[in-house]
Amino acid sequence: MNRNIMERWWVWIIPLALVLGIFFLYPLLNVIRLSFSNATIGTIEDGFTFENYIHILTGSGFWQVMKVTLVFVFASVLFQLLLGLITAILINKDLFGSSLVKLSMITAWVVPGIITGVIWSIMYSSSSWGILNYFIRLLGLNQIPFLYTPSWALFSVVLANVWRGTGFSGIMQYAALRGIPDQLYEAASIDGASTWQQFWNITLPQLKPMLMINTILITIYTFNTYDSIFALTQGGPGNSTTVLSLGAYKQVFRYLNLGRGSAYAVIMLILSGTFTILYAWFMGSDQ
């Protein structure tokens, strides 16, 4: 009897279903319900209302946050992809020293987000330990207030995020590069194709599926990033670096507005859901 039941596939999945159900799915459903309520931290009963969404979608605060999120995600993803591609091509040459590059990429990638923020806030400082401003002064330029004006602050959180995320993107693309058969290049060289032509006609098309997957994955990860920003600027100055996740956090834990924060979270959920469906679609068409 005992043995029979172990022959069923679902028995082995019960623990997973329980943990995900209680600690993931249930909160998820709850956040959707809360987003239609006027709950605050501390109140027990909540009514049903569309007020949160109406307030969010008609106010300017939310759209400012959306704009920041868009710039943050787009710039981070673009540079992580480009830099990742360049480093992947470089280490694929496999010269002496390529393992040092790989090691440095992974090292940056395992730095926890919060510590990334702390490290870069030291780098960005305008005091004697702010090494970036030292270099800038060496070039004869004025100091840059990296974290103190809205546009520089946004630039700074993107740079820190690119630093941390490029390792992942680069290693992924490196793996894809290694998967391209050498014969393709050999045949192309025999036909007299230049390095540049080989890159356009062999490397990029072969890399395309991975670039797509990578783009979507990085987009999702970047979209969910908040800890490095939290340590660098706390979303400021003003709201100039407040991305959606930080916006949700602020609504709930600073303004104690549970309903409105939940609505932010649901909007995040819808957006990352869209990316995930795209991801599934590409994975599906890939097979």
Binding site: L20, P27, N30, N224, V252, L258, S262, S272, G273
Partner: peptide, 22 residues
């Protein structure tokens, strides 16, 4: 398997809010 993987894409802040409450 894909449905399980979807969870991977969700930011902890989304579940953090209701979990804090209960």
């Amino acid at each position: 398997l894909f449905v399980i993987l979807i969870f991977q894409m969700i930011s902890p802040i989304v579940i953090g809010i209701p979990i804090y409450r209960y």
